[in-house]
Simulated scan of single mutants.
Amino acid sequence: MEEKNYFAWLSIDDGKPVKFAELADMMAKALHPSDDEWMDYGVARVNLEQELPQAVQRGELVVRNPAGLGRHTFPVGQSLKSSVVLPQDLIPFLGARSIGLRIVKQQAEARSIDWEYWRAMRKAKEWQACALSLGLDPDSMKGHPQAWMAGPGSGQLFTSDSFPSTDAQVKFEKRLRLLRANRYDRAVFTPPLTQYSSLGPDEVLLSEFAAWGQSVGWPDMPPELVEMAKPVALPRSTKEAKPFAPKTRIEPQGGDSLTPTIWTICYDLRDAGKKVTAGPVMAELKRMATQKIHPLTCTTAGGVKYEYEKGDEQELTAPQLDKRVQEWRKVGG
């Protein structure tokens, strides 16, 4: 639609979501921008403060959780006031009211990445790696003060001004979700075993990450990161000085939905030169359960719970796990 067909225009900064609590004021000012229209502005604002929540409830206006920018599932009361609106969600809503939206391009702040540091570090947290893949300096990103509202296991969340644009923020979050979905692919990534490796549970080798990023088709990775995409072995412990060479792994025959996970942990411990017993295996299962990594669902006082066949939930206790480890040892030990 041409500019002349709009009754008024609302301007927002590029890459910054609009706070829902400020939207009524912004729209009223767009409709009545002149100082001598202050009475009309006041009436419009009062009306909009009543209309906007109703529009949200009717589904005409989409609001999002400020922590993660996911669509808000319960936009009422204080939760609605603290929500945000993205430009793409605002355009059709304003257009239906003959208000146009102007997005003011801002000069992105230069974010210099210390590539020498990351080359020497060789590893990074998942979110740091995804930031580097977009040319964003992890040290310049700001944690969101309401990240706790996203719940446990949601990971690190950042304010919108950590990104040069909304598109960059959306792309970052998609890459992070994709990485976490593939993090336990042993054919691609070195497994993170907090107690038995220099890799933390949410860390990746940058060499492996860069190679994987190329394989999934990320053409915009900085050349400095692309150069790291070569096989570099990280010792599994401070005692090891030579690259890790995994032994043969035999897949389990039979068992239930949790058996492959147990066997994988046993193999990882064995290949790291560690003693394979129920204790360290249970510790890793509990860590995975807190992150709800399938099929694990939660921890219990005696062990963990996991999703069994047909969606049923079963508990695995330490004595039961010990028997399973003994079964694995007959084949893989």
Rank of each mutant, 00 (worst) to 15 (best):
A55E: 09
V170Q: 01
R180Y: 04
R183C: 00
L285Y: 05
G77M: 03
M39N: 04
A30L: 08
L101A: 07
N65E: 15
G77V: 01
R177W: 06
D185F: 02
P152N: 02
D161S: 11
E307R: 15
S11H: 11
A289Y: 05
F172A: 08
V84E: 07
G59M: 03
D35P: 15
F74V: 15
W38Q: 13
P17M: 00
F163Y: 12
T194H: 02
V188G: 08
G200V: 02
Q253N: 10
W148T: 05
L321G: 01
E37C: 05
L101I: 01
E51W: 11
V281Q: 10
N47A: 14
V84P: 11
A108R: 11
G77K: 01
E22T: 11
T159A: 12
K275Y: 00
K125E: 09
A67C: 08
L86H: 05
I113W: 12
Q314S: 09
L23D: 05
W38H: 13
P222G: 11
P243S: 13
E307I: 13
E116D: 15
R97N: 09
L225H: 03
T159N: 00
Q253F: 08
V56Q: 01
G15H: 04
V63R: 03
L48N: 12
L48W: 00
A129E: 06
G42D: 12
I103Q: 04
G95T: 14
K292C: 11
F163E: 00
E2M: 10
R324D: 04
L234F: 13
E203C: 10
P231T: 03
A30S: 08
V62P: 00
S257M: 15
R119A: 04
Q326H: 08
E109W: 06
G143T: 13
R45H: 03
P33M: 01
I265A: 13
C130P: 03
G15I: 02
Y196I: 02
P246G: 00
T194S: 14
T159C: 13
K247S: 13
G59A: 07
A44E: 05
T259Q: 08
A147I: 09
V76A: 14
